[in-house]
Design a protein around this nucleic acid. Structure first.
Lengths: 227, 227
DNA sequence: TTAATTTGTTAGTCATAACTAACTTTTTTA
DNA sequence: TAAAAAAGTTAGTTATGACTAACAAATTAA
């Protein structure tokens, strides 16, 4: 009840900030997310962030002390999760039904996630028969806002000889996503780590009968499960 | 080229004004659409309209002289038609794939029509196999922006004894649309005009083996083709 | 054809959400 | 631990797009 009303009245900007803060809080294992970090992430000035955080604190979505770290209330988290759900459902729809490629979906989903209609999201979910993962392999929160964050193992963390399966990729960069599909990697690809080169941390991998050398930076954005 | 760029840079408000003006110019056979009329239609103050019209004139989407009637440039019309195309495609999608009813689609389509992605619209169109009409019976402009406005005959304009087929309904009011489906009318319904009552202009009609009396106001919003 | 009404315009205000510049607090490091 | 760097805050500005109130032009009616 309360949730519904609050969600309705949030501006696009407020939603963007809540979602960004939520993502940062998950990614950052240090547990400390600061004002400037959020500003960087959203590509706005620290002053803008500071301003918005004040508003979100007044609306009881964010908690923080002056000069202290930022945290989300349950209500704030709930809104963020529902945005992530919408985003991922739309990405899935765009990829599976509208011929969008991996790297094209993010920008459009960023717009679509702000459409306000409970029915739209849930019907879209039903239409696609309740998919559990989005095209990048990320878990889609269910209609009750339950969200299981799988612990992420990066390809870069594996030892020589390890064999793994690609479970998801970081969807933050279009050029990265294009690169991934160009070399022929996809969800569920089986990857073997042939060699980790000491000199520049580059990694020689093998998949689909081909060998490739990728950088550390690349491997940091590829998430796998060991098999 | 130019079109694409311009469309991208328009704000939601600018789009709303252009679309509203376009609709008014079509509906109003007098050919004169004024500032206050537009304000009424959009439910904003005349001052707001005046302000926005200035901006749209500067951007070459609108032409008008001081105290004169409002007109759209070709560019302005083109933007409006593309918005109508998007709106009607989304309405069709919501009704035909996501279990939305006639009266629920408009509000959500109003939001969806502002999503900026050429690919999204065209793929949606393809996905639905290029529908020619939306759920209210309105023609959907094609990808080239060709838009055929069918001359509209209202149910209220018919004489006693006339037999017609429902081709479209005015989608501006949710309560009207609910009313239409509640009494059992739908697209293609065959309607016979039994009696036009002089006293209050109410009309006795017959369809699907039932008889109903509807008001003049109701019949003004039902569009038909005589058979 | 003057007066009343409607329509259109202008000026000034407000909220949102961005910005820069200046300043303060906290943290780091020399 | 004191200086430097980083992080956070505040004040003041800008653009968008609403608003009201006051006023001007055009149209309609007496």
């Amino acid at each position: 009840m309360t949730n519904k009303l609050n969600l309705k009245n949030l501006t696009k900007s407020e939603e963007d900030y809540l979602k960004a803060l939520f993502q940062l809080l998950i990614e950052d294992d240090s547990g400390k997310v600061g004002n400037n970090q959020l500003a960087d992430y959203l590509k706005v000035s620290p002053a803008s962030t500071n301003n918005m955080i004040k508003k979100l604190k007044a609306k009881k979505y964010v908690v923080s002390e002056k000069y202290g770290k930022l945290e989300l209330t349950e209500e704030g988290k709930s809104i963020a999760v529902r945005l992530i759900r919408k985003h991922r459902l739309w990405e899935t729809f765009l990829c599976n039904y509208l011929n969008f490629s991996w790297d094209e979906v993010h920008e459009v989903a960023e717009q679509l996630e702000h459409i306000k209609s409970q029915k739209l999201v849930n019907e879209l979910d039903r239409f696609m028969d309740f998919p559990s993962k989005d095209p990048h392999g990320e878990v889609i929160p269910n209609a009750d806002g339950e969200y299981f964050v799988l612990p992420k193992i990066t390809l870069s963390s594996l030892e020589e000889g390890a064999v793994c399966q690609l479970v998801s990729v970081n969807d933050a960069s279009v050029t990265f996503l294009k690169y991934v599909s160009e070399i022929g990697l996809a969800l569920s690809s089986e990857i073997k780590v042939l060699e980790v080169r000491e000199f520049d941390s580059s990694i020689r991998i093998q998949f689909n009968q081909v060998e490739e050398t990728v950088t550390r930076k690349f491997a940091d954005n590829v998430f796998v499960k060991v098999i």
